[in-house]
Design a protein around this nucleic acid. Structure first.
Lengths: 332, 332
DNA sequence: CTGAAAGCGCTTACAG
DNA sequence: CTGAAAGCGCTTACAG
């Protein structure tokens, strides 16, 4: 059997309470006593039983991290950081895949699953503001991502999408490009990034040409490839740059361009958004906006820990950077 | 407060034991009593407290799933399946990232972390057979992947790499290719896949030309790009097909080929291995060997659950399929 | 088939 | 600063 707190207490000749005080830090314990307890712990190889601790504290020690799909690179890389950072907070992270379905997201909120949770961090897709408002206020919730709009009554962590869109577009303009196309799924979905694109054009004194703001109708690369492909095939003059609202759209755009003989980036420079970990999967590799995932994870965990049932929802912003790769800098 | 087992017992007018019997199925309970208990559970909204159950059972209800990096697409997609399947087994999955470092993998085996584990499923990189042999036999362990060799004294789940290498190469030969190059990191690392390649050539009556079996010296795409690039630049006649031991190597190979003006697949067909979820990130998309990840996850979980401390190590094989995409079939 | 009671290993008022 | 004891919510021999 594994040594218990009692065993340590006995070996050190003190009470359980004293051992507990030593193990959990905080309280003042005489240095000699403390040393004796630590020695006993070392000798016995004692480690606290988490299930018992959680039972006593009325916690589970588990938080849920819910994303549409864990095998999508953006979420996988975010999950990896969340795992790293949660350790610091003493939380076990229980990953959940919602498929972006409202029912699955809602089921998590209403905690209709056996393991009780200390809180939930979710990147929602289908959740309505009403769903969020009607949730159990005793279960801390932090929302992530761009689809969780301002209207949600819950803490939220994201990046400044508008500013990031501006920075990405500025980069293209700084390369001397003047006919910059924008690609986004369509109204309502991450189109705030396109507002940043418009900001950049305006700041550069360029006319806003809404004819080259294309709605792909979907988030998949195929959507972008089809949309841009048809547009090019209709005889429209090619842009000299493309700002895509996500990396997947950027990759679809590159396919459409390259398959029509246009050189990226010589003739058309392309910038994506999200910095999904694709290394050199794409040819050329993708210049993109990289959200600071470590910061996102850390901010979300802090917000979860510090959440008060009655407080106003927090709006937290993580930094981002522009990572310049071959799709704008060229292949060396 | 949440209702407890006692509350249900009181409401139903029975003892805790009877409620427990109903909740945990198995034992015979009179139908009328059972119904009364179920009604009480429903009325009170009772759900068992997992921490308390685990404490009573001496389990943690948590298993570890350890991979080098969760944000590498192969592991992310495997983790996603593991999550789905573990639910069936009633396990919470605690993901771990070892970075492939032996110390991190060993630390997990020796359970030097606060939460006790019911078992570990690991895709090891640095672990030695001695490490595995000297582990705590009370902590069930299942190894995954190709780097966990036959010599490891633990249950193992994988696919038939040799046969998969043969199937991949057969596909290239069936396309009429005759000068098929093989790319692998080098001796000892997943080179059993290359043995399958040799099997296919031999079966087709083609001479084995070890000059076109290239060792990249590493697992990254860059390694393949550099190795194949130099080889081509040295004036060697290009192959008409490449079998790469991993998708990343295949992507590096495609870069090397395309950047030198060779058309894929018209001039050089390429097959990868692993089916990492890249959709249309690569141009052309990648024909590849797809291990059945659901089967891998399920077999690993079953093996973990059924593991006996003294039994001989199990060798389990999951099925695979060849997924034909543009890098051999062409772009339609 | 059903019940009363001990025990799982912690934490934390409450005393001293 | 330290200790004895109750309690967290389950499971499971052990009786009946």
């Amino acid at each position: 059997m594994r040594p218990r707190l009692t065993d340590v207490a006995e070996a050190a000749g003190v009470s359980m309470k004293t051992v507990s005080n030593v193990v959990n830090g905080s309280v003042h314990v005489r240095e000699a006593t403390r040393q004796r307890v630590l020695d006993a712990i070392d000798n016995l190889g004692y480690r606290p039983n988490i299930a018992a601790r959680n039972l006593a504290l009325g916690r589970s020690g588990v938080i849920a991290f819910a994303v549409p799909q864990l095998d999508r690179p953006y979420f996988a890389s975010l999950a990896a950081r969340m795992l790293d950072e949660a350790e610091t907070f003493g939380w076990i992270v229980q990953f959940h895949q919602t498929g972006g379905r409202r029912e699955a997201e809602l089921a998590l909120l209403t905690d209709r699953h056996p393991a009780r949770l200390d809180g939930i961090i979710m990147s929602p897709l289908g959740l309505t503001p009403e769903d969020v408002q009607q949730r159990d206020p005793a279960l801390p919730l932090v929302l992530l991502g761009e689809t969780a709009g301002e209207q949600h009554l819950a803490d939220h962590v994201g990046i400044d999408n508008r500013d990031a869109g501006r920075v990405a577009t500025d980069h293209l303009l700084a390369l001397g490009r003047r006919r910059v196309m924008a690609l986004a799924p369509g109204p309502g979905l991450i189109d705030v990034r396109i507002n940043g694109y418009r900001d950049a054009l305006a700041a550069a004194g360029l006319p806003a040409d809404e004819d080259i703001v294309l709605a792909t109708g979907g988030l998949r690369g195929e959507d972008a490839e089809r949309t841009l492909g048809r547009w090019l095939d209709s005889g429209n003059p090619a842009p000299d740059a493309v700002f895509a609202a996500t990396d997947w759209l950027a990759m679809g755009a590159i396919r459409a361009l390259v398959l029509r003989g246009l050189k990226v980036p010589e003739q058309v420079a392309v910038v994506g958004f999200d910095d999904i970990p694709y290394d050199l999967a794409t040819l050329p590799t993708l210049t993109t906006v990289a959200p600071d995932r470590v910061a996102i994870a850390r901010l979300a965990l802090q917000a979860l820990r510090d959440q008060q049932p009655d407080a106003d929802p927090l709006r937290l912003q993580a930094p981002f950077t522009l990572v310049v790769r071959e799709s704008t800098a060229g292949i060396s």
